[in-house]
Design a protein around this nucleic acid. Structure first.
Lengths: 235, 235
DNA sequence: ATTAGTATTATGTTTGACATAATAAAAGTA
DNA sequence: TACTTTTATTATGTCAAACATAATACTAAT
């Protein structure tokens, strides 16, 4: 056996910890048994006995499942299966002060891509009431003359409503999680200086397109609306 | 004080567990001290003493930080700060068999939106070499006559390369995480029957646009390219 | 029958001990 | 001296047993 092959076989030794194995096992069981939300799983001591490990190890493994949003533990009741909240978990580490610059920029860009790309879902699911609400939101916004400063509240109100219209709960949660990061990146010096904002397409313009236009036109308008952000990224 | 108000004030009692508090505290410390990647944090026993809790509690809190990708613990060396991997945790619960249907569909849609919306990043960062590689990938694909069945491998190769071109590592990781879900949703019965695929815009067409066209044209082409998926969602 | 009190139970927390692996220090050898 | 081998140290990984606490189930009293 040559050296490289030998090394390769060495790499494959099981370096995982006991907790790792128990965690894996538990997830497998959850999948296999096709447990429904609300079903409860065995108590910690039972699991420990069954799996032949200490309660400590089981507890750590369960802790992980809980972090993944797979279970929820209540005193006396034990742990019960829950619908994993993908972004609940993630939002914990979605902390602008902890993430590195590249990741922050990446997230900023993802938001831009999503808002342009979600046009079809908007058009397919928007209702008359949605349009009315959007118009109301726009009406509340300050006049164009004041628009030189980026008003985060109105931005959130308007764009948040758009996400809502998509009817995609996951997407909505995703954007909610991304919001603080987006805000942070926008105001921090990460993207160079904040330029004087030009209004290429206003919120009102977007509503008009959503009401009377096509997804394709909306993508174009949204792209222009976001031009200020793109300019900061690309220049 | 009326009943509702009373109830509200009751909700605000601290129901968090000890581990919760320690975790929060640790994250705060990490932020405040502005520790760089590679810096090591105090040992478990020291933390336990300092914070006035048992080592077990500290361990569970550290376990969470580790899951968030904030630290990495090595024997003897103690725990060291790492670049948090946003999707590390998430990808663990990104299991098609565990997520509920609505979330799965939501993820499917998010991918579609991203691929349409990322046009600008593609155009701004694409190189001649990228184009060449894309052409090579396309060349390897089976002839149009065989295209009636959705070839997942070629799809991944092509679209994966696109994500790579965006130069957005976070986005790339995100799509990598979404991939198995996308595949699952596509083949499961979640979206109704798989229709006979029509080729509106081929991969080759997309490459042409990316080489000679504009972001706007690319969005249009990509939207058409994904028409089969959209049709399944909307019909 | 409803309420108040009690017992039970499973998780939360503490303590203390030993195992193990990575590193540092010491000892040995050329 | 330079290099390898052995030994000691150290911090995490694992185990065990006990008590605290909160939610539930049970029982008794009015």
């Amino acid at each position: 056996m040559n050296s490289a092959l030998f090394k390769k076989s060495l790499q494959s030794i099981d370096t995982s910890t006991l907790v790792d194995k128990v965690e894996k096992k538990l997830v497998e069981i959850l999948q296999k048994k096709k447990l429904k939300v609300g079903d409860s799983i065995p108590k910690e001591v039972e699991l420990a006995e069954t799996l032949g490990v200490s309660r400590t190890v089981v507890r750590e493994a369960l802790l992980r499942l809980r972090m993944m949003g797979l279970i929820e533990s209540k005193k006396k009741k034990g742990a019960v299966i829950t619908n994993p909240d993908l972004f609940g978990i993630m939002s914990k580490s979605m902390n602008p002060h902890i993430l590195d610059q590249e990741t922050l920029k990446g997230i900023f860009e993802i938001r831009l891509a999503l808002e342009i790309g979600m046009a079809d879902f908007l058009f397919h699911r928007v209702t008359k009431e949605d349009i009315e609400e959007l118009k109301k939101i726009v009406k509340k916004e300050p006049k164009i003359t004041d628009q030189h400063l980026f008003n985060i509240e109105h931005e959130i109100a308007f764009h948040g409503k758009l996400y809502e219209i998509t009817g995609n709960e996951t997407l909505k949660k995703f954007q909610k999680m991304l919001l603080p990061v987006f805000d942070y990146v926008h105001h921090s010096g990460l993207l160079g200086k904040e330029m004087p904002l030009k209004k290429f397409v206003s919120h009102k313009g977007l509503v008009d397109v959503l009401e009377k236009g096509t997804p394709e036109e909306f993508r174009k308008s949204m792209r222009l609306h976001l031009e200020n952000h793109f300019a900061r990224i690309f220049d």
